[in-house]
């Protein structure tokens, strides 16, 4: 079809956690500019299956930008060249005919590569289970008006809660730091009345788990926020620092 593109792809292939990987080159003809980046990978995988080759493993689920699965480091940037989108929301019209596109997995000690472009992001789950929750008794929900929430606090909490834990912040950061993720998760609860009971212990435990997982520290370059598909603000990292330092110097919970 007219307007379709011929592309060269350089994709990271690795059979499992313990073997060394390397780049493989693929040529893909007649790519529609209306395809999403993941659909382009589907076409490539179908071609590989027909040729009797192993298809490329990559994480994907919702394909509408809300699950955070589609981790791909495209031409040197997480989720490719666009701002505020995930890989599934990136379309081939962002590329030109004849382009060479390099696709790598997230690179971080805390995110080991499982296969090809799939990395193990359980480190995020372990940080969440260390304190990213509130403890509430079961039973009837209480009357909403008994917990007044200022509009500004609700908005800030909602902006922080938009984090989909995709790991682009870690991937973009020169230190592979998870501070934007952890700070968003600490903030969304620290800003709301329901989060107050475990506020100190949460900050202390989540930061301790983040360090134990082997993520780096923050240099405030702002790369995380610039590459975040949900555009989470760096002000959350400042809030996390206040929460953590405040908790460490005043709370006796941990």
């Amino acid at each position: 079809m007219e307007g379709n593109m011929n592309l060269s792809l350089k994709v990271w292939r690795q059979s499992n956690k313990d073997t060394a990987g390397g780049f493989e080159n693929y040529n893909l003809d007649s790519v529609s500019p209306d395809m999403s980046f993941l659909e382009m990978f589907d076409v490539l995988n179908e071609k590989l299956v027909v040729e009797g080759k192993e298809p490329i493993a990559f994480d994907h689920d919702c394909r509408e930008g809300i699950c955070g699965s589609c981790a791909m480091y495209i031409n040197g940037r997480p989720h490719g060249p666009l701002k505020g989108v995930t890989t599934c929301q990136l379309h081939m019209r962002s590329f030109n005919d004849g382009d060479t596109i390099v696709v790598e997995p997230w690179r971080a000690k805390a995110f080991p590569v499982l296969k090809d472009l799939v990395v193990d992001r359980d480190a995020f789950d372990r940080i969440m289970s260390s304190g990213g929750f509130i403890s509430v008794n079961t039973g009837n929900a209480q009357d909403a008006n008994s917990l007044p929430v200022p509009k500004e606090a609700a908005d800030d909490a909602f902006s922080a809660a938009a984090c989909i834990a995709c790991g682009a912040c870690v991937a973009a950061c020169k230190n592979a730091s998870a501070m934007l993720f952890v700070s968003a998760k600490i903030s969304q609860l620290a800003l709301l009345p329901q989060g107050q009971a475990e506020r100190s212990i949460r900050a202390e435990k989540m930061v301790a788990q983040m360090d134990a997982e082997g993520f780096g520290a923050c240099t405030n370059t702002g790369a995380c926020s610039a590459e975040c598909p949900k555009e989470i603000s760096m002000s959350n990292i400042a809030r996390m620092n206040r929460e953590y330092i405040g908790a460490k110097f005043s709370s006796t919970a941990v």
């Binding site: 040197g76 805390a110 973009a172 020169k174 230190n175 610039a226």
Partner: peptide
Amino acid sequence: LLWKTNNDARPVNYAVNNPSANSTWYSRSM
């Protein structure tokens, strides 16, 4: 010490990286 921690957090570097798209060179070169 921070340089060591931060360096250890990414044992395998990207083959193709474009950090100038999201941050200033001097912020990455402290």
